[in-house]
Amino acid sequence: MTLTLTVPPGAKVRVRITNENGETTEIEVEPGETVTITLPAGSTVRVEVEVVDPDGRKRTETFTLKP
């Protein structure tokens, strides 16, 4: 399973991925970048995406991906 994120110009994104064992991976994606994350097959993962807009506003979306 893959997750692809494209960050709009001016925004910053931090992604936290937590697996079933509670292990967390965190990455930051710079403005204008596209990143593809390969998620472990057969695992349920929690993905938290934090977006910081150019004006400093933050918003966070959290979702769970199941196999």
Results as ranks from 00 to 15, higher is better:
27 I>N: 12
33 E>L: 09
1 M>E: 05
1 M>F: 13
27 I>P: 14
52 V>L: 02
55 D>S: 04
52 V>C: 04
21 N>V: 07
51 V>I: 09
60 T>K: 03
15 V>M: 11
10 G>D: 05
36 T>G: 09
27 I>F: 11
52 V>R: 04
58 K>E: 00
4 T>V: 10
33 E>F: 09
62 T>E: 13
14 R>W: 11
25 T>V: 13
32 G>W: 13
19 N>I: 14
11 A>P: 01
48 E>R: 03
56 G>Y: 00
38 T>D: 09
36 T>A: 07
32 G>I: 14
36 T>S: 09
25 T>F: 05
31 P>V: 13
59 R>M: 02
24 T>I: 07
7 V>L: 12
28 E>C: 04
55 D>I: 00
19 N>W: 11
1 M>K: 02
58 K>V: 12
2 T>S: 05
48 E>D: 04
4 T>H: 10
38 T>K: 06
34 T>V: 13
8 P>T: 12
15 V>S: 02
23 E>K: 07
27 I>T: 05
46 R>P: 01
9 P>N: 05
24 T>A: 07
54 P>R: 08
44 T>A: 08
61 E>N: 02
22 G>D: 10
4 T>Q: 08
25 T>Y: 10
18 T>A: 07
35 V>L: 06
66 K>C: 15
41 A>L: 09
62 T>I: 14
13 V>W: 01
28 E>V: 03
57 R>D: 00
40 P>V: 12
42 G>R: 12
11 A>L: 00
24 T>Y: 08
19 N>S: 07
38 T>L: 11
49 V>S: 01
41 A>T: 10
23 E>S: 06
39 L>K: 03
33 E>G: 11
58 K>M: 03
10 G>S: 08
21 N>L: 05
40 P>Q: 12
43 S>H: 10
13 V>R: 01
4 T>P: 06
21 N>F: 07
24 T>H: 08
30 E>G: 03
64 T>Q: 03
4 T>D: 07
39 L>T: 07
38 T>H: 05
44 T>H: 04
26 E>K: 06
56 G>K: 00
63 F>T: 15
4 T>S: 08
28 E>Q: 11
66 K>F: 15
21 N>H: 06
1 M>Q: 03
16 R>I: 04
53 D>N: 01
47 V>K: 00
5 L>Y: 03
42 G>V: 14
65 L>F: 15
43 S>P: 06
57 R>C: 10
18 T>V: 14
45 V>D: 02
52 V>F: 02
67 P>L: 15
19 N>T: 11
57 R>E: 01
14 R>D: 11
7 V>W: 14
61 E>A: 14
64 T>G: 00
51 V>N: 01
64 T>N: 02
45 V>S: 02
29 V>Q: 13
28 E>R: 07
31 P>M: 10
4 T>M: 14
56 G>D: 00
64 T>C: 15
47 V>L: 02
66 K>R: 03
63 F>I: 15
2 T>K: 08
52 V>Y: 02
52 V>P: 00
10 G>W: 01
26 E>F: 04
28 E>G: 13
19 N>V: 14
39 L>Y: 10
60 T>G: 00
59 R>D: 00
64 T>Y: 15
31 P>W: 05
36 T>F: 13
64 T>P: 15
25 T>D: 05
66 K>A: 14
64 T>H: 04
36 T>Q: 04
32 G>A: 12
63 F>H: 15
52 V>W: 06
12 K>F: 06
6 T>H: 09
27 I>S: 09
65 L>T: 01
51 V>W: 15
43 S>N: 11
47 V>I: 06
46 R>V: 14
63 F>R: 15
3 L>S: 04
20 E>R: 07
31 P>G: 09
34 T>Y: 12
59 R>N: 01
46 R>D: 03
38 T>R: 04
62 T>G: 05
17 I>H: 11
19 N>H: 05
47 V>S: 00
63 F>N: 15
61 E>H: 14
26 E>Y: 03
42 G>Q: 09
6 T>F: 14
67 P>T: 14
37 I>A: 14
31 P>K: 12
8 P>K: 10
46 R>Y: 11
33 E>V: 13
67 P>D: 05
13 V>Q: 01
10 G>K: 09
43 S>I: 12
56 G>P: 00
59 R>A: 01
33 E>Y: 09
23 E>Q: 10
63 F>A: 15
52 V>Q: 06
30 E>V: 13
46 R>C: 09
25 T>P: 08
51 V>R: 02
41 A>E: 08
5 L>S: 04
50 E>S: 04
20 E>C: 14
61 E>C: 15
35 V>Y: 14
32 G>M: 13
36 T>C: 14
15 V>Y: 04
49 V>I: 12
8 P>E: 13
25 T>G: 04
55 D>W: 06
62 T>C: 15
1 M>S: 04
42 G>C: 15
26 E>S: 05
30 E>R: 11
56 G>W: 00
8 P>S: 10
37 I>C: 10
13 V>N: 01
52 V>S: 03
24 T>L: 04
9 P>H: 10
50 E>D: 09
22 G>V: 11
66 K>N: 13
6 T>A: 12
1 M>W: 13
41 A>Q: 08
17 I>D: 03
9 P>G: 07
15 V>R: 01
3 L>Q: 03
64 T>A: 01
8 P>G: 14
9 P>V: 07
10 G>H: 05
5 L>V: 11
34 T>F: 13
57 R>N: 07
11 A>F: 02
63 F>L: 10
11 A>K: 01
54 P>C: 13
53 D>A: 03
53 D>T: 09
14 R>M: 09
34 T>Q: 07
44 T>R: 02
67 P>R: 02
59 R>W: 15
12 K>E: 14
37 I>Q: 13
28 E>A: 09
61 E>Y: 15
36 T>R: 06
3 L>H: 07
50 E>F: 01
12 K>G: 06
26 E>N: 06
51 V>Q: 02
56 G>Q: 00
27 I>M: 11
20 E>N: 06
12 K>V: 06
60 T>S: 02
59 R>L: 02
13 V>E: 01
3 L>I: 09
46 R>N: 04
30 E>C: 10
64 T>D: 14
2 T>Y: 11
39 L>P: 05
12 K>Q: 10
47 V>D: 00
1 M>L: 10
16 R>L: 05
50 E>Y: 01
53 D>E: 04
32 G>P: 12
13 V>M: 04
35 V>R: 03
3 L>F: 03
24 T>M: 07
7 V>Y: 15
55 D>Y: 04
27 I>A: 12
39 L>V: 04
66 K>D: 15
13 V>I: 03
17 I>F: 13
15 V>P: 01
66 K>I: 15
56 G>H: 00
46 R>E: 05
8 P>N: 11
62 T>Q: 03
21 N>S: 09
8 P>R: 10
46 R>W: 04
17 I>M: 11
23 E>A: 05
56 G>T: 00
52 V>A: 01
57 R>W: 01
67 P>G: 11
55 D>Q: 03
8 P>Y: 14
29 V>I: 07
14 R>E: 14
41 A>V: 08
50 E>A: 02
34 T>D: 09
49 V>G: 00
59 R>P: 00
5 L>M: 13
42 G>E: 12
46 R>T: 08
